[in-house]
Design a protein around this nucleic acid. Structure first.
Lengths: 236, 236
DNA sequence: GTGCAAAACATCGTATACAATTTTGCGGCC
DNA sequence: GGCCGCAAAATTGTATACGATGTTTTGCAC
C-alpha cells in the first residue's frame, strides 16, 4: 500500500500546481485554521502561493465542488458557512452511507487493516491527551481518518471519495456549531466499532456506527440563528 | 416547485458561462451523443461554444470532478471510459445508497410526488415504444429521472447531487458495456417500486430497488477485454 | 527496408492583460 | 441630517499570449 500511496502522491503532485494549492487550502479548512465565512480572494490566494490568479481560481473552483468553499458570482469565494439545514443533511447522509460502507469493509477486512485501525486509535488517544493547537488539529484529522480508513478498506473508491467530502464538511460544521470542548468524535466509540467488527457482530457494529454519528450531531447546536453577524453581533 | 426550479435555473444560467458549457457537454455525454473515449480538446470545445480555452478548460475540469471526463496531464480531456472495475463500483455504490434514499423519500412523499413519478413513468413508456435516436435519448434521460426524482423527494440535496453523479456515470457504463437493445432500466420495475411505496411496503420497495439495480448491472458484459482495438479489430 | 533520432507540430499549463460587474466613498439634493 | 445618485476603486469574468510537454513526422544511418 505504501508504494501505491506514493505513486498516487507522485502522480498528484506532478499533475498540476492547482491541485497542490487546493490540497493546502482544504487541509487548512479541515484543520480549522480557516474559519467559515473567511473571504478567499483570488489575488490573495495567488500571492500567498506565488502563482497567478488562474491557478488560484482553479483551486477555489475545485473546492467549491467539494462543498468546502462557496463561490458567489462576481463577489468572490468564501470558506463555506454551512446552514443548520445543510449540517443536518450532511449527518443524514453519513447515517445513510456509513453502515453500508462498514458492511463492505467488514467483508474485505484483513488482520493488517485491523492493526492499522488500532494504530490510528492509539494515535488519536495520544493526541487527545496533549495540549496545544497543533495537537488539537492533528486530533481532528486523526478522528476523521478512522472513518476514511474504513471507506478505503471497503475497496470502493467512489464511496471513499464521497466519504472524504462528507468528513471534510463535517469538520466545518463542527467548527461552526460544535459546543463541547471534546472535539469531533467520541474516541471510545471508534474502538467499540472495531471490536464489534473483530467479533463479527456486524449488525451491532452498524448500530454503534449510527449511534456514533448521532452522538456527534447531538453535540451540535443547530438552532437557527438568522444572519447572526449583521446586527446581533453588536448587541452582545 | 415550478417557481423554485425556475429560480434555480435562472441562478445557474446567470452564474457563469463555464457552467452552461459544462451542462451542455454533460447532457451530450449522458444522452450518449458523445461516446466514451472521445477526445475533448480545449480548443475544440472553446471554438464549438465560441468561448476561449479558459472557459472550455473550466468546464472540462468540472466534468472531471464528476467522473464524466478524464483529463490526462499534457494530453487532454476525454469522455470517461470507465473500467469494468469502476462500473462495478458504481453499481455497488448505488445499491448502497438507493435503498436509504428510498426510505427517506417514502417518509416525506406527498400525493403530488406520486403523481409526478407516475407521469414520468408514462412518459418513459411512451418513449420506449417510439422509434428513432431522439426518442431513445429521451428515454435514457427519463429512466434516470426516476431515480433522480426519488432523490429529490428525499429532501437531502447532498445525496441528490451524489445520485446525479451516479446516474450520469451509469449511463456511460451502459453505453460501454450494455448488451440488450432494451436500454437502461427495466421499465416495469420502476412502476413496481412506486406501487410498493404507495402500499407502504417499504421493505419490499427496497428489495425491488436492489433487484432493479442488480438487473441493470446483470445486463452488462463486464469481462475484461484488454486493448481490444489494436490487432483484433483487423482480424475480424 | 527498417530502426532510431531529431525536428516540427499540436496540445496543455500558466501568466498576464483587458472587460464587466460589484462595492465603496463622496457629494449634492431633498 | 439623511437619502439618493454618481464616480472611482477593487474584484471577478474572460480572452489572449507565451512557455512546457507530449506526439507525430521526417530524415538519415545502418
Amino acid at each position: 500500500m505504501k508504494s501505491a500511496a506514493k505513486a498516487q502522491q507522485a502522480e498528484d503532485s506532478a499533475e498540476t500546481g492547482a491541485q497542490q494549492i487546493r490540497d493546502a487550502i482544504r487541509e487548512a479548512i479541515v484543520e480549522r485554521r480557516l474559519s467559515p465565512g473567511t473571504k478567499l480572494s483570488e489575488s490573495d490566494v495567488g500571492n500567498l502561493f506565488n502563482v497567478s490568479r488562474t491557478l488560484a481560481r482553479a483551486a477555489l473552483q475545485a473546492l467549491s465542488y467539494e462543498g468546502l468553499v462557496s463561490v458567489e458570482k462576481n463577489r468572490g469565494a468564501f470558506v463555506a458557512y454551512p446552514s443548520p439545514e445543510e449540517a443536518r443533511q450532511i449527518f443524514s447522509a453519513r447515517r445513510l452511507v456509513e453502515p453500508g460502507i462498514l458492511r463492505e469493509a467488514a467483508a474485505r477486512i484483513t488482520p493488517d487493516d485491523i492493526t492499522h485501525l488500532r494504530q490510528l486509535l492509539l494515535e488519536e488517544g495520544r493526541l487527545m491527551s496533549e495540549r496545544g493547537q497543533t495537537a488539537r488539529r492533528a486530533e481532528i484529522k486523526a478522528s476523521g481518518d478512522f472513518h476514511l480508513t474504513l471507506a478505503a478498506i471497503s475497496g470502493n473508491s467512489i464511496m471513499q471519495r464521497f466519504m472524504e467530502e462528507l468528513v471534510a464538511r463535517s469538520s466545518l460544521v463542527i467548527a461552526l456549531y460544535g459546543q463541547s470542548t471534546a472535539s469531533s468524535c467520541g474516541h471510545s466509540e471508534h474502538g467499540d466499532i472495531i471490536s464489534a467488527i473483530e467479533a463479527d457482530e456486524l449488525d451491532r457494529a452498524c448500530q454503534l456506527m449510527l449511534h456514533h454519528i448521532t452522538h456527534i450531531e447531538a453535540d451540535l447546536d443547530l438552532r437557527e440563528r438568522k444572519s447572526l453577524g449583521l446586527k446581533e453581533a453588536f448587541e452582545l
